[in-house]
Design a protein around this nucleic acid. Structure first.
Lengths: 345, 345
DNA sequence: CTGAAAGCGCTTACAG
DNA sequence: CTGAAAGCGCTTACAG
């Protein structure tokens, strides 16, 4: 293992100069630079992270921006927990961290959080690009400042994020189709319930539905699939719509909720006589798990959101400290959760 | 953030003495020791890992012992890959690692690997305690030398391992019962196929079967479950036994393989006319995945063996370097793998 | 453009 | 039993 000093001696320069070349700092003649660079390459030099960090006195700040979660039960609690766990770990390496949150229904709060974040001058950013257009606009500022950023949970294609961590939504919807049809007989009907609010943003939900529809198109042509759009997704609206659908259609035996709101449907199903309705949704937060455990929800598909937050922070950390280039895309798992394995995921 | 120097000044001693107290090194008077310890506790002192590691010049060796895998397709390939990945990461921290392997059918090779391992004088050991009695005998040597060790995949209760990482086998078997009955009509029969070899060691397989049986006892009493024991589990024997069972029993519609050998059963099922047999097994290695993809195997239950190896090494690493005390037990996930999510686990 | 030197915080061999 | 000092390998402020 070569050290900077070794290289310096061999190149007949001082350690300071090697350091300058190594980090592309200015003030080195081209000739010296080339001479040193050649040796660095020759020996495949890797600097000692411990010595480097110790001398550098850890001046990095990492900022995170994700949607806020009001309660323990909400989905966004999980990435946040992952982020916090990673922060705790890297704190001992002297990294500063600043967490920002926005209301996922409020574009302005997204922009505001972002501006606040810029003020702390982060060296790296973890974010969930919730609103497409605004994201393009805001990340341009990061690009200008050469601040690296990682997306979690939601992806935006052809941007300059150094990495994305999230699920293949199409494939997860396809799997949902398969799981729902496990208990479905021929000629039955299936309902997809989605929120109007998300039709424009959050492309993941549309992709899930596409995948879901593909499964039935490919495999199970005798099953009819119907989509309904809800305004508010509150308890009353859900009850009203479902009551209508079930009364109009005797064959309706399955419901697919491509968001994390399956528990809303479960709530309603518990108020009506047992009808053997299969219900499948996304995300294993407390509200959903409750109905999974009493088998009103049959399956949940989960993507390990905790890990998304955790990995996201770790990726930026390693990028900054160890110069480790991440993959452009990390596929989150497509986990199948049932009553029986819900405690072991 | 206090440093050793800060503490030294306040205690009116030298940094060297604080270091001695911090690491319980000999040669400090009780009085001094108490004085320093009090300050250390008061400030909740955490030493700078970078400075410490740099000065210490990383003299740690970690040893691993797991069963060998002959091919890419085998289960034990995965923990090994996880181990190798972790090793690669911690190498840059200057940790030495030595990997040892044994033949899981050969008790002597287990002992031999263990003795070889002791010769390298490791500071921490990762191992799979395959053979119960021998494990008790061998780990006693580690205890005597105060070398910490972690178990992965197989647990042995009431031993002095600092941690265990593996699956709750009972619960996974219970889930297997549920999954198998999803497509099973009333009054059908289910077969459990196991190897005689593993009846004594590898308690996990027995636990899986217990969980599996419990599910049917609790939920689905109309289904009969039968167990058969194979001698060699080779292709011919599997074919012979299955041919016999299917010919004797028209109602046989499901097969449960509580080991990683489901592909052996799948191999046979492909040779006979399509009978709508549900097949469920363990572990997503290549041989199994092949039959999962063509739907001869319906479900695989997996435990993320890669992560077991990876985490195991990381736990020892953090224990040695950062003095981080691990949990006694880490539950591996109980993942449900189907054709549709097999690329996203 | 370049080098010598001090410093990051901990560890250790040496002296007493 | 205790301290002073050198050293781990990199970074940086300063001098030239």
């Amino acid at each position: 293992m070569k050290t900077i000093k070794d290289i310096a001696i061999e190149a007949k320069v001082s350690p300071g100069t090697v350091d300058r070349v190594l980090h592309n700092r200015p003030g080195v003649s081209l000739k010296t630079k080339e001479k040193v660079q050649k040796l660095l390459t020759k020996y495949n030099f890797e600097k000692n992270v411990f010595a480097s960090t110790l001398a550098f006195k850890n001046k990095f700040t990492i900022a995170t921006i994700i949607p806020s979660a009001k309660s323990e039960k909400e989905f966004w609690q999980e990435p946040d927990k992952g982020i916090k766990a990673a922060i705790k770990e890297i704190q001992k390496y002297g990294i500063e961290t600043q967490c920002f949150y926005f209301d996922k229904y409020d574009l302005d709060s997204y922009e505001k959080a972002f501006e606040e974040m810029l003020k702390v001058n982060p060296n790296g950013v973890l974010m969930t690009p919730f609103f497409y257009k605004k994201t393009v606009e805001l990340t341009a500022k990061l690009n200008a400042k050469k601040i690296p950023y990682v997306f979690i949970n939601i992806d935006v294609e052809s941007m300059d994020n150094i990495a994305f961590i999230g699920q293949n939504s199409y494939q997860s919807g396809y799997l949902a189709g398969k799981l729902l049809s496990l208990k479905l007989e021929d000629n039955k009907e299936v309902l997809i319930i989605r929120s109007k609010k998300y039709v424009d943003n959050h492309g993941a939900i549309s992709s899930r539905i596409k995948g879901f529809l593909s499964y039935f198109k490919e495999k199970n042509t005798s099953v009819a699939v119907k989509e309904v759009y809800l305004e508010t997704f509150d308890t009353d609206e859900v009850a009203m719509i479902l009551a209508k659908e079930f009364s109009e259609n005797e064959q309706l035996k399955g419901v697919f909720v491509p968001s994390s709101a399956a528990f809303k449907v479960a709530e309603y199903l518990e108020t009506i006589p047992k009808k053997e309705i299969s219900l499948i949704g996304y995300d294993s937060h407390e509200d959903n798990i409750k109905y999974l455990k009493n088998e009103t929800i049959d399956f949940l598909i989960s993507q390990n959101p905790y890990e998304q937050g955790y990995m996201g922070v770790k990726i930026i950390f390693e990028y900054l400290l160890f110069n480790k280039i991440p993959n452009k895309k990390y596929s989150s798992p497509i986990h199948i959760i049932t009553k029986e394995n819900s405690d072991y995921i």
